[in-house]
Design a protein around this nucleic acid. Structure first.
Lengths: 231, 231
DNA sequence: GGGTGCCTTAAAGCAACCTTAAGGCGTCGT
DNA sequence: ACGACGCCTTAAGGTTGCTTTAAGGCACCC
């Protein structure tokens, strides 16, 4: 369940798996790829976890305590049709795979599988998002390279700290959408850390100072978003 | 699954497969599901075929005459990053699957596979193409985008405060129905707070001033509703 | 005409946000 | 190991502008 301090707004995955050993191994492998992974071990915790927001993809085991994986998937799809779901299950029967996919999963991987293949399939799903996390995003006078963690403005490189980059990446990834303060903080810290301060505001302030004040729009009482008019 | 109107959203698939027998069987199975299938048997025909347009998805074998499947995929992705590609191949080695997925494929199915599973995976891919757009509500001269927290009138952006947006969204969500003052206030503030003032009226007033006076209809003694039709 | 409910306006109150600055913590180089 | 440096957080004070309050006027119905 642990979340190490190593996340700078990288992509956040939700792993639902009750086998502690497997969960631990997968978390390790995924984190090595740069993903932020939060893990839960009960099916009935899926919806509360997603409520917090900030997840980009769900890895879902089927045999779960609390609520079966398929039931959890059904609930999930009633609320959120967008987020990609990859089922990881030992059930290898054809009808399991088909009902999983038709139940709203985007992929179905049968245990045992190689971590490398899982990661490749995660990549394939995440590639399809609004703004691919691995490509350079051109935004007005800015060029943002999520892979190399660099940003340049009018060709001049700008140096951003980890947290600043984390905030920026989340905003870029959901370009145009308004992200609440809570969502942004969850993305930076994970959900077990609690921030009772205005740290986020300070990071926003620094970003505006470095990247121009027109970039980030404040929606008072709601959150922040990238101003959409520059392209 | 009724057959009515089954040609309205006809999906056209491109099958790239050089084994005549398999190709024939797959075409049959896919057509039975209502897809339109065109089949080619050479890798170097993929690009010309896609040039014609109209395809929603590609089923790609790897061992192909003319041009290898992986090479064809690379060419394809240079031109078109959007169209889903499912690799169907007898190559079951881990590195094949990974390089296929990382090469831009959306799924990788190892032969032999069941037609039912292929169809389920095709469905899972095509599901993602329906209504990719946001849930922008178009209402007469107004366009309301809840995710971006923006409203525009005749294309001109209008700036709304949080409370104003809250009232408007509730009315839009129950378009046509009359919402009582209590319902609207409850939606704004929650259950435990009670407002002993005319704040709601003020917000309504501001909305009318910004969005036009014909939008919100007062039902005296009851509440408010969106006027059913605006010209 | 009187009562009731809604509209309009303006001003006070206040929460959210911005800005600045200082201290803590970890990192890196010497 | 020690010090220098940069980053993150915390805190305090200032600013903005939304929200509410309140009061008076208008419209509707009996």
């Amino acid at each position: 369940m642990c979340i190490t301090g190593f996340n700078g707004g990288m992509m956040r995955l939700l792993l639902v798996e009750d086998d502690d050993l497997l969960a631990d191994g997968l978390q390790r492998a995924l984190r090595a790829e740069g993903y932020t992974v939060d893990c839960i071990d009960r099916g009935d915790l899926v919806m509360p976890a997603l409520q917090d927001g900030g997840f980009e993809l769900v890895l879902l085991d089927l045999g779960l305590p609390g609520l079966d994986g398929m039931a959890a998937l059904k609930l999930l799809r009633q609320k959120d049709k967008q987020i990609p779901v990859i089922i990881i299950s030992a059930r290898d029967a054809l009808e399991d795979r088909i009902s999983g996919l038709d139940g709203g999963a985007d992929d179905y991987l049968v245990k045992p599988f190689s971590a490398a293949e899982l990661i490749a399939r995660v990549r394939a799903r995440l590639r399809r998002r609004e703004t691919p996390g691995t490509e350079v995003v051109q935004l007005g006078e800015l060029a943002i390279d999520p892979e190399r963690f660099t940003v340049s403005r009018n060709g001049e490189p700008v140096s951003l700290s980890r947290r600043e980059m984390g905030v920026l990446l989340q905003l870029v990834r959901h370009r145009g959408r308004v992200l609440t303060r809570d969502q942004l903080e969850q993305g930076l810290y994970g959900w077990n850390e609690d921030v009772e301060s205005n740290a986020l505001e300070v990071h926003i302030h620094h970003l505006r100072k470095k990247l121009g004040s027109g970039l980030i729009r404040t929606v008072r009482g709601v959150g922040y978003s990238l101003s959409g008019e520059m392209e």
